[in-house]
Amino acid sequence: MAFDSFSAFLVMEGHGPYVWVCYGVFVLLLAGMMFWSFRTHQDIYQICKRGYEQQSKVGQPKPKAPATFTRVEVSQD
């Protein structure tokens, strides 16, 4: 290791804040972009899936209503 101790590694002879801010923003933006892209893909995939499943249900023939007996008045004239 290039440093004598962990605290020396963090401080980096006064350059620590500059270095760590850069690495923090880099990791935050890269991880954020990866997570957001993954999440968007999952969301779009689920929207497509729900749409196709609804279409499948609508496309299926509706089950017939059970048979009923209705008295029909028919004129004998």
């Binding site: 290791m1 290039a2 440093f3 590694f9 980096m12 002879e13 350059h15 620590g16 500059y18 270095v19 850069c22 690495y23 880099f26």
Partner: peptide, 27 residues
């Protein structure tokens, strides 16, 4: 990044601030 931050030697001119190079140049 781990190699560059913790194990690479210090730059004789810029000191430790040069360690930003390991993300600056790739980006």
């Amino acid at each position: 990044i781990v190699w560059g931050l913790a194990f690479a030697p210090k730059d004789y001119l810029q000191g430790n601030s040069y360690r930003i190079i390991f993300i600056h140049v790739p980006a």
